[in-house]
Amino acid sequence: MVKKLKTYVNKYFSDGPKTAAIIVSVSIIILIMVIFSIRKTVTISVDGKYKNITTFSNTYGNILSSNGIKIGPKDKVSPSLNSKVHNNAKLIIKRALKVEVDVDGKKLSINSPENNICDMLKAEKIKLNSLDKVVPYKYSKLKKGLKIIITRVESKDIKSSSQIQYETVVKDDESIQQGSNRVIQEGQNGKKETVTRIMYENGKEVSRKVISEVIKKQPVQKVIAMGEIPDYSPSRGGNFSVVRSLNMKSTAYSADYESTGKEPGDTDFGITATGTVAKRGTCSSVAVDPRVIPLGTKLYVEGYGYAIAEDTGGAIKGNRIDLFFNSNSEANDWGVKLVNVYVIN
């Protein structure tokens, strides 16, 4: 460029000294222009601290080298050190910090330039599972000397089946003697399925919790009928089993005309509804309402004795019993009274 300039000057300016002065001046101007064209101003940020540097270097690596700024193997630099330098550019340097990581039974010493724990773990390819615990919080800012503890957490759901014990229910039954019982319904165990969640930390169980129970089969109650009817020992002696007891209004009658409207010699005189001869003795005849006590039923009447339901009467309806006596005077002496009547075997 200078040679061309000299030729140009000699062509139009014939004075030698004057020509030389012009050439020198123009050369200086051109040199200054070249210097300004290759000089650049770069802002360097080191961990948030800024510094402006004027440089003629073409790469950021050369800038740092010429300014005595060293880069560690884990330091993060942006743009890269080999990138071409542009005027008014910014170079950001993030120094790596030394932290300690306790994970999978190992204690790791790590230098990292990342902003937080989570980014550091990703950069170091330390994988976190969804349940894993990180102390401090995984998005905490990295600090020099920070100690990080990672606890591996695992969850397992275990299914198991178990029996549901049946209940035994006892019901009173007036058709069964006291001291006796009868199984009305056999019991059956049920079945349930349980899901238990077991939590492990670093391979050791720390808790277990039932998270669901499903009844697969309902249990069936065992039902036992317990006898309610007592064995009765009347005051006159003897012993019998009571099928059921009734409290009844009692009256008395005889075969006499006053009770039956019949006299000796009349048809059916002294004959009961069942065709037997009415009697008073060890097992006397009584009249009942067959809808309450069926004819032929064996009875024991308190204060009267053993009897059998053999007769009926027009006035004997419902919860009423008519007791046979041998004479009208005995019947009148009995009168009307409430009595306990036992149906017996």
Rank of each mutant, 00 (worst) to 15 (best):
I271P: 00
T272P: 03
T272R: 04
T272Y: 01
T272W: 01
T272S: 10
T272L: 00
T272Q: 07
T272F: 00
T274Y: 04
T274I: 07
T274N: 14
G275L: 04
T276W: 00
T276R: 12
T276N: 09
V277G: 01
V277S: 05
A278G: 10
A278L: 12
A278K: 07
K279Y: 06
K279P: 02
R280S: 10
R280T: 06
G281A: 03
T282N: 14
T282E: 14
C283Q: 15
C283V: 15
S284R: 08
S284W: 05
S284N: 09
S285I: 13
S285N: 06
A287G: 09
V288W: 04
V288P: 04
D289A: 03
P290D: 14
P290A: 14
P290K: 15
R291K: 15
I293L: 14
I293V: 12
I293H: 12
L295N: 06
G296C: 08
G296P: 13
T297F: 01
T297Q: 09
T297A: 13
T297W: 02
K298S: 15
K298C: 14
L299E: 13
L299P: 10
Y300D: 11
Y300V: 11
Y300Q: 12
Y300H: 13
V301H: 07
E302H: 08
E302S: 06
E302F: 02
G303K: 07
